[in-house]
């Protein structure tokens, strides 16, 4: 469906992305990386806001730039930060975007009613967005991305500002949508996509690190994730010698989860690695984790 072919992006001497090769079919893909790793650059190239300095992005075999509106017609995009007119209601705002998406007025009206219901904003469909919370605005954003019934949905940090209940509803919505569609979700919150993504794409140092299933990515740390209990006094030296993934106070001691490649000690318990473990391990420098 969508192929990223040897794509690089440079701004003068600065390299934002280096030789990225990816292939997306139907399903949900998670794009996982810490802020500044090049996620948004890749997303912006996938939605034609930025052109690659090198390489090409193909949709069904044709370059998306030459496909022009034919490509954007099947695209639904939710940017990390998006604008809206405060004096517009969700309905009038979505009508405006429906016009830009080339959706007929009548069709748009029906679709808007349906989508506002899906994102639980029917009650405030005609209220001005001035007083909306961040979560409500984000839900309007999700609705606009789905207005044109897109074949490709690209969502940049879609759960920002959503409360846990809204996040759950959002995940459910994505699962419903994922049939016959390509959904790419960029996030740095692992739990948002861990359970729904068919595959994860991870970028590190402007290059592709992994594009694989959650299971396979987790397997890269198989047998290397441990938990043990240490005293508070030992914590500093433990941090200095191991890649700590989490620390938890337990009675007067500290339960630590960490990565260790090599021989283990007796009081260490080996654990099944989670995606979050791989994330924290791979990006330990960017996230300033103690090693």
């Amino acid at each position: 469906m969508l192929v990223v072919n040897n794509v690089s992006k440079n701004y003068g001497d600065f390299t934002a992305l280096k030789n990225i090769n990816l292939e997306f079919g139907s399903g949900v893909y998670g794009l996982l990386a810490p802020n500044g790793a090049g996620k948004t650059t890749l997303i912006k190239m996938l939605v034609t806001l930025i052109s690659p300095s090198k390489g090409e992005i193909l949709y069904n075999g044709t370059d998306i730039t030459s496909l022009d509106e034919e490509y954007r017609e099947v695209l639904g995009f939710l940017p990390q930060q998006f604008g809206y007119y405060k004096h517009y209601s969700p309905k009038s705002y979505l009508m405006y975007l429906a016009a830009l998406k080339g959706i007929e007025k009548k069709v748009a009206q029906e679709k808007i009613t349906e989508l506002l219901d899906k994102v639980a904003l029917s009650d405030v469909a005609n209220k001005k967005m001035r007083k909306f919370s961040g979560g409500m605005i984000q839900r309007v954003g999700i609705a606009q991305a789905l207005l044109n019934d897109p074949k490709i949905v690209i969502l940049d940090e879609p759960t920002a500002g959503l409360d846990p209940k809204e996040r759950a509803r959002f995940r459910q919505l994505l699962t419903e949508l994922s049939r016959d569609r390509l959904i790419i979700i960029s996030t740095h919150i692992v739990s948002d996509i861990e359970s729904i993504a068919n595959e994860m794409v991870m970028i590190k140092n402007q290059e592709l690190l992994y594009k694989d299933s959650v299971e396979n990515i987790c397997n890269t740390l198989d047998g290397a994730v441990y938990e043990t209990t240490i005293t508070n006094d030992e914590l500093a030296s433990f941090r200095a010698n191991h890649v700590l993934l989490s620390e938890k106070q337990e009675q007067s001691k500290m339960l630590v989860r960490f990565v260790h490649k090599g021989e283990s000690k007796e009081d260490w318990t080996v654990k099944n690695p989670h995606l979050e473990d791989v994330f924290l391990y791979e990006y330990r420098d960017d996230l300033s984790l103690g090693v």
Binding site: R72, L75, P79, Q81, G83, L100
Partner: peptide, 20 residues
């Protein structure tokens, strides 16, 4: 105004795109 409101990302990725 649209640029300062960050509407351009949405406008340019719709069907009309940069022709807006």
């Amino acid at each position: 105004r649209d640029r300062s409101l960050r509407l351009v990302d949405l406008q340019y990725t719709t069907r009309v795109g940069r022709n807006i």
